[in-house]
């Protein structure tokens, strides 16, 4: 996917101005998860929390479905999404597996291979 930034690396997206505009509400919500009280409020009422932060339908959907690639495509920034992943109890290898379509074991094996 080619971006404003001119990057053309498969499976790799840069969070540039276009994405920043698209994802502002979603990222603002994820930024709020730095605060434990906000994490609890989200857990207690996901739909209401998304609504209060003004997420659009697509953003609400990918949040609801824990769709990692969808969250990125909807303008989510990896640094803020990491806080959402924390709520879900997912580590970076879970996320890697989900995005690559691998099993977690296969994903970890791929990382080990990179060291050889």
């Amino acid at each position: 996917m080619t971006q404003a930034s001119g990057l053309n690396v498969p499976g790799t997206y840069l969070f540039d101005g276009d994405m920043a505009m698209k994802g502002y509400a979603l990222n603002k919500m994820c930024f709020s998860f730095n605060d434990a009280a906000n994490r609890q409020a989200f857990a207690a009422d996901e739909a209401g929390y998304c609504w209060r932060y003004g997420l659009n339908d697509e953003q609400s959907r990918v949040v609801r479905e824990r769709d990692v690639l969808g969250l990125l495509a909807a303008g989510g920034n990896v640094y803020y999404l990491a806080k959402f992943a924390g709520i879900l109890g997912l580590d970076v290898q879970d996320l890697g597996a989900a995005q690559t379509g691998m099993s977690k074991e296969a994903f970890k094996q791929m990382l080990l291979e990179a060291g050889k």
Binding site: A4, D16, G17, D18, A20, M21
Partner: peptide, 10 residues
Amino acid sequence: DAALSWQLIN
């Protein structure tokens, strides 16, 4: 004018 803003920032 967010588009021109980003042009400025870039």
